[in-house]
């Protein structure tokens, strides 16, 4: 029994660590889960529309923030410059809305709460526990 409890603890603990960044969207957004590949595509601009065909409004952080570095490393697997280049390429050739850059998680939450098509990420879940206008979307790992 102790072994079982230990295994369950380890699994839950692992999950907590892997869920260090949470994807958030507006509460009106019907999305519940999102594959990690889509996360990458959205944040580098390759995927620009929701299922309902509305334009995705990407929200990101400054390049020198730890949160962004971790998120980029984990989900996008590209350098920040590489991501920028991709956005620049898209900005020149397609009708896309480049990501809005904020400094803090609260600024990101505020923007997402006010924009139905916005998507961002945070690290501190408790920041959205009391905000009903923003919801977390579960990332489906590979």
């Amino acid at each position: 029994m102790k072994k079982v409890l230990l295994i369950l603890f380890l699994i839950v603990g692992y999950c907590e660590v892997s869920q260090a960044q949470s994807i958030i969207v507006n509460a009106q957004n019907s999305t519940i889960t999102i594959p990690s590949k889509f996360v990458k595509d959205i944040f580098i601009g390759n995927m620009t529309r929701w299922k309902n065909n509305s334009l995705i409004e990407v929200v990101d952080y400054n390049a020198n923030t730890e949160l962004r570095t971790e998120f980029t490393a984990k989900y996008i697997e590209m350098s920040v410059m590489r991501v920028y280049k991709n956005w620049i390429r898209l900005s020149l050739s397609a009708e896309v809305a480049p990501p809005k850059i904020f400094h803090t998680q609260q600024e990101v939450i505020d923007f997402v709460s006010k924009n139905a098509n916005a998507i961002g990420y945070i690290k501190d879940r408790q920041l959205i526990s009391k905000d009903s206008s923003v919801k977390e979307v579960k990332i489906l790992e590979k």
Binding site: A63, I88, S91, V96, A97, P98, P99, K100, I101
Partner: peptide, 18 residues
């Protein structure tokens, strides 16, 4: 525009320039 946009991480400004 490109240099300022990249320095300030203002991709929207870059897009406006384009």
């Amino acid at each position: 525009g490109l240099e300022i946009g990249l320095q300030n991480e203002n991709l929207e400004a870059i897009k406006s320039i384009f």
